[in-house]
């Protein structure tokens, strides 16, 4: 009993961890399934079919391609815009600061369905046809705030004395920015960009409001397929993304931890 009490938080933590990971494990396991009918819900037979032919279902790979393309462009643009705003907020005094903060906060405090529908009304009112361009505009819009928040934290934690030291050591403001400030803020910018990419890649609701039948992203493809039965290839792509993310983030963490250990 005493043992359980002492380790209660560990036990609960591990159980919750299991809750978080269970669906991912199911997705991976069922990527090796060969379902009897359309529905990949019941286990039938082990098979590598989907893995050897990931594009086997019409439209799936083009939708992944479109999501990657939109995710990449949206995260790059949002990162540039957001980083600039973060520097202004973290480094400068100016009038209209609280208004700026409000404007950054609002998109994060607005449900996707509201943002998606309001953009749609704007596009309709202005006669702009839905498509890749409108999806891209929407994605950049909701990613900017997240980039600002991520980068601002990093900028704010930067010691202003370091820039003074650079100036003292003969670096002009531009040189100080490139040689000192930017390298130090870079991890925050990278984190913001990664977050923006995953938000964009994963978005269904806003995208759905602003897409056309010819601009089907990966989440839209899944949604459409979910009505009839999701092809096993979807599980394959989901597994690849999950394992890839674990691999990349894990690698970054290990490198970071090693550097930290050297430091300690």
């Amino acid at each position: 009993m005493a043992w359980i009490r002492r380790h209660l938080v560990v036990i609960i933590g591990l159980l919750v961890m299991g809750y978080i990971l269970l669906p991912n494990l199911v997705v991976i396991a069922y990527s090796f399934n060969r379902p009897r009918g359309h529905l990949n819900i019941q286990w039938s037979r082990f098979s590598f079919d989907a893995w050897t032919n990931p594009c086997g279902t019409p439209g799936i790979c083009s939708s992944v391609g479109l999501s990657l393309k939109i995710g990449l462009i949206a995260s790059i643009v949002a990162t540039i815009l957001g980083t600039m705003v973060a520097f202004a907020l973290g480094r400068h005094r100016f009038r209209g600061r609280s208004l700026t903060n409000l404007l950054i906060f609002m998109p994060m405090a607005t449900p996707e369905v509201v943002m998606g529908s309001s953009l749609l009304t704007l596009f309709i009112a202005m006669g702009i046809p839905s498509g890749q361009m409108t999806i891209l505009i929407a994605h950049i819009m909701f990613c900017v705030s997240f980039v600002v928040v991520t980068v601002k934290a990093r900028v704010a934690s930067l010691d202003p004395k370091l820039e003074e030291a650079a100036a003292d050591l003969y670096a002009s403001p531009a040189q100080a920015f490139w040689r000192v400030t930017l390298p130090l803020v870079a991890p925050g910018i990278a984190a913001g960009a990664l977050l923006a990419f995953s938000l964009s890649f994963d978005d269904y609701i806003i995208t759905n409001f602003n897409a056309s039948p010819t601009s089907v992203t990966f989440p839209m493809f899944i949604w459409g397929a979910a009505q009839r039965g999701v092809p096993v290839q979807v599980n394959v792509i989901g597994s690849v993304m999950f394992l890839g993310a674990v691999g990349i983030v894990g690698f970054a963490q290990i490198v970071g931890a090693r550097r930290k250990r050297e430091v300690a």
Binding site: I20, L21, V27, S198, D202, V230, V249, G250, Q253
Partner: peptide
């Protein structure tokens, strides 16, 4: 660090795929 990665990692699998897994 491993646990932190595992908390964040599901973000990178599609929201929809993970929700569908609950059907299973």
């Amino acid at each position: 660090n491993v646990l932190l990665v595992l908390v964040i990692a599901p973000f990178y699998t599609s929201f929809l795929i993970r929700t569908l897994a609950w059907q299973t």
